[in-house]
Simulated scan of single mutants.
Amino acid sequence: MSARRTARSKLLAAASARFYAQGVASTGIDVITADAGVAKMSLYNNFRSKAELVAAYLDGRQQEFLDVHRRLAAALPADAGPGARALTVFDAYVEHADGADFRGCGLLNAAGELPAGDAGREAVAGHKAEVERLLREALAPRDDADALAEHLSLLLEGAMVRGGLEGDLDRVRRARAIAAGLVGED
């Protein structure tokens, strides 16, 4: 691994931890470089601005979720029905978020700190649309796939917000149980 790649990885890891724990706005560049153990210039050699670092953080969180989802979906039996396929989205959220100090969805938390029209907010909106698309595709060929995917997406995101406010991932687990009933997998 090149020194530049190593510094980039260290910076992203440090930024991810701080952005999730303390927020994007309250996390300064100096803290990130100190946590990463790299010189401040390394940050600017890898990211043109803090906004670019935030964008990489948002994309990284989404990619982590997608990787978990792909693994869970691939583990389903070949004859799994639409309901079981849709529930893998909930399972991926739970697995991706499971751990100490649950604060909700890192993407939504960051978006809440960014001003309207910010590219980061637009990226988060795109990531959330992708989650709804995954649900829609999982539910196909059901006639109600579009409407049900929207309902499940709202249920899932609402549970992430409430769970984050309460510091309790159990809200998301309960949302999964509700979703199981909605898709006929209870």
Rank of each mutant, 00 (worst) to 15 (best):
L43R: 08
T88F: 06
R5H: 11
R162H: 10
S49L: 05
R142I: 08
L134M: 15
A51W: 03
A100Q: 15
D168A: 10
E150Q: 09
A13T: 13
M160I: 02
A147P: 00
A36D: 15
D146S: 06
I178R: 03
G167Y: 07
Y57R: 04
D59G: 04
A123T: 11
A149C: 03
V89A: 14
L169A: 11
F65V: 03
S16A: 07
R176A: 13
A25K: 14
E130W: 15
V94Q: 07
E113M: 01
Y93P: 05
G28A: 10
A34M: 06
D79V: 12
L58N: 02
L66H: 06
L11A: 12
A15I: 14
F102T: 09
A14L: 09
V124C: 08
A84K: 12
A21M: 04
V131R: 05
T27M: 01
E166R: 08
G120N: 01
A110K: 00
G126S: 01
R70C: 05
A25P: 07
A51M: 07
A13L: 11
L154V: 10
S49D: 02
L12P: 00
A84F: 04
L139F: 02
G81D: 10
H127V: 00
D35N: 06
R171Q: 08
N109E: 13
P82R: 08
G106E: 01
G99M: 04
P77N: 14
L169E: 07
E185R: 02
A179T: 07
E137W: 13
A97V: 06
L156F: 15
